[in-house]
Amino acid sequence: MYKKTGILFLVLILPVFIYLGLKTFGTNHFSLPRYIPAIDSTTGEIKMAKRLNPRWNESEMDTVFQTIPSFSLTDETGKTFGSNSLKGKIYVASFFFTRCTTICPKITSQVSRVQDTFHQDPDVQLLSISVDPKFDQPEKLATYAKRFDANKGQWHFLTGEKKIIYPLALKGFHVPLADASEYDAAIKNPDETFIHSERLILVDKEGVIRGFYDGTDKKEVDRLLVEIKVLKSIYTNY
């Protein structure tokens, strides 16, 4: 009798409890690293601050991470594009120049894949920032944007003052950038003049870097596509 009752419980009742348990507690919780901890200039140590853990609704000490500094540049339409436009957005930034014949077309083609994946998602924005701003005026950027079928309002091609763009790349997005002509006036070939990173940088809604990816490598960009979805899931769940 008891044996039959136990078998009946296992067959009929236990699956119901398992289902309810999975439904209640089985939500997947993804994580994605944050990059570039903030350093206390007086002590040289990593800054720490209290943060509310939304999962447990408790405060805990957590690392403070650097955020992308505010900036104001000019887009391919000639309008001012500021970092305020990116508040509450996830975005992918990259550096290029229109005269580049080596890695830039490869990078831009991979950014185009990101656009194709998230073309109906206004929360995902794309920035392509010129490292050759003197030449890359808005009309040059507009022609380049058209070449890659860039979606207006989602994929922004930016230019501006060199004194803003170069520190933004180096100290804000933490990617290497140099103008070799500053050290050797004999260099005339643009491909040899502007030395910049091939990395794509994923930035979250708070302005914190969440990933670096080789923009010339399809597999790396595949990883970026997945991690954008992970980041979106984090915001949805929390």
Score class of each variant (00 low, 15 high):
3 K>F: 14
8 L>D: 01
10 L>E: 01
11 V>A: 14
16 V>C: 06
19 Y>W: 03
19 Y>S: 09
25 F>M: 06
27 T>H: 13
32 L>A: 04
40 D>P: 06
43 T>I: 09
52 L>T: 15
55 R>I: 13
57 N>V: 13
68 I>T: 07
69 P>W: 09
69 P>F: 10
81 F>H: 02
82 G>W: 06
82 G>I: 13
83 S>P: 01
83 S>I: 00
84 N>Y: 05
85 S>F: 01
89 K>G: 00
95 F>Y: 08
97 F>M: 03
98 T>P: 03
98 T>R: 03
100 C>T: 00
102 T>Y: 11
103 I>M: 15
106 K>V: 10
109 S>L: 08
109 S>I: 13
111 V>Y: 02
115 Q>L: 07
116 D>T: 09
116 D>F: 00
116 D>P: 00
116 D>E: 15
118 F>I: 00
131 V>F: 04
134 K>S: 13
135 F>N: 12
137 Q>M: 06
140 K>E: 10
141 L>G: 05
147 R>Y: 10
149 D>T: 05
151 N>K: 15
154 Q>K: 03
157 F>M: 11
157 F>H: 10
158 L>Q: 09
163 K>N: 12
164 I>K: 13
165 I>S: 07
169 A>F: 04
169 A>N: 11
170 L>A: 08
173 F>K: 06
173 F>G: 02
175 V>W: 03
176 P>I: 04
178 A>T: 13
178 A>D: 15
182 E>M: 03
182 E>Q: 10
183 Y>W: 12
183 Y>D: 08
184 D>E: 11
188 K>M: 05
190 P>N: 09
190 P>H: 11
193 T>H: 15
193 T>W: 02
193 T>P: 01
194 F>Y: 12
194 F>W: 14
194 F>L: 09
196 H>I: 12
196 H>V: 11
197 S>Q: 09
199 R>I: 00
199 R>E: 14
201 I>F: 09
201 I>S: 03
202 L>E: 12
203 V>Y: 11
207 G>T: 04
209 I>D: 06
211 G>R: 05
212 F>Y: 15
213 Y>F: 09
213 Y>D: 14
221 V>M: 03
222 D>V: 06
224 L>E: 04
226 V>N: 10
228 I>K: 14
230 V>L: 09
230 V>Q: 01
231 L>H: 07
232 K>D: 12
235 Y>F: 13
235 Y>H: 10
235 Y>C: 05
236 T>I: 07
